[in-house]
């Protein structure tokens, strides 16, 4: 079964009572490090809100906040790019789950010829870097008239994230005792009844992990979209934002307003599933 990192929740066993100097130093350094790591986000938000006339002044906190960049985001058409990103991320996630679930389930439950070959072929796809395949991918979609289409991005992102999903789901299905399913079917549940009432609920953490990982990877994808979308309105947010970075000048406010909007959904998703992801990643890997 999965190993939950429940230990983190457990109260630390009683330690020497007074906080030692070491403990204080440890806590202090943890705070400092955490601050340094969060800092880029603060910078992003402040830069997005900094009024243009204060951009060149050496004051860290501007006198007033200017929400103009956020307003421009919605009125300036980037909302459409956000929608593209959302469609691509949601579409690839659904696609990945639809095709990964049967494959992972079957290869975990049945011993058939070519099973290991299948699993390792899937694993190997993980190492191909999209940049090396871009020429082929571009030609392929060009031939089918699918350049600038959301569907092509969904397919590519689905393909590149399938390996992780198959493997993690495979590990979960394999960890569910076969006897549970057999017992349920003795009780008169049909094959699909067993699948939906027993197996899938038990594998849910794995499903959620695969779901979130795919969603985030597709949400953040950059290179493929950079090549496969040429019309500004059809580009996902990551590519659209890149156009704010000019050769000589960068429109920082707009860039960061967009970046904040692009990042927040991902952080929320991550916060929701952190624990599940961790248990999913470490499942079965510690003896």
């Amino acid at each position: 079964m999965t190993r939950s990192p429940a230990g983190s929740r457990r109260r630390q066993s009683p330690r020497r009572a007074p906080a030692s100097l070491k403990q204080v130093l440890l806590a202090a350094s943890a705070y400092v490090i955490a601050f340094i790591f969060i800092f880029p986000y603060l910078e992003m938000i402040i830069a997005a809100l900094r009024p243009k006339e204060q951009q060149r002044e050496a004051v860290y906190l501007p006198d007033s906040f200017n929400w103009g960049a956020f307003v421009d985001f919605w009125s300036g058409g980037l909302a459409g790019n956000l929608l593209v990103t959302l469609e691509v991320a949601a579409g690839s996630t659904i696609l990945v789950l639809l095709v990964a679930l049967p494959a992972a389930y079957y290869s975990a439950r049945h011993n058939f010829r070519g099973r290991m070959v299948f699993l390792f072929l899937v694993l190997i796809t993980q190492m191909f870097q999209p940049t090396a395949m871009l020429v082929g991918i571009y030609r392929e979609f060009f031939q089918f008239g699918m350049v600038d289409s959301v569907w092509s991005l969904i397919l590519v992102n689905g393909g590149f994230n399938l390996a992780f999903a198959v493997w993690i789901l495979h590990a979960y299905f394999a960890s569910i005792p076969r006897e549970l399913e057999e017992a349920a079917s003795m009780d008169g549940s049909g094959r699909f009844g067993v699948l939906f009432r027993i197996t899938l609920p038990l594998a849910l953490p794995g499903v959620v992990t695969a779901l979130i990982f795919t969603f985030i990877a597709a949400w953040n994808e950059f290179v493929v979209a950079l090549t496969l979308t040429t019309t500004p309105e059809k580009q996902p947010l990551t590519v659209a934002l890149n156009s704010y970075i000019g050769q000589y000048q960068v429109d920082w406010q707009s860039l960061f307003a967009g970046s904040v909007i692009a990042t927040i959904p991902v952080i929320i998703l991550f916060a929701l599933i952190e624990r599940k992801v961790v248990s999913g990643l470490t499942a079965g890997s510690i003896k």
């Binding site: 880029p40 949400w219 970046s259 991902v266």
Partner: peptide, 18 residues
């Protein structure tokens, strides 16, 4: 943990620009 999550979740693109 929160700081780590935030850094992890940041798209490579936005992280780079910041």
């Amino acid at each position: 943990s929160f700081a780590a999550m935030a850094a992890w979740a940041a798209p490579a693109m936005t992280g780079s620009t910041v």
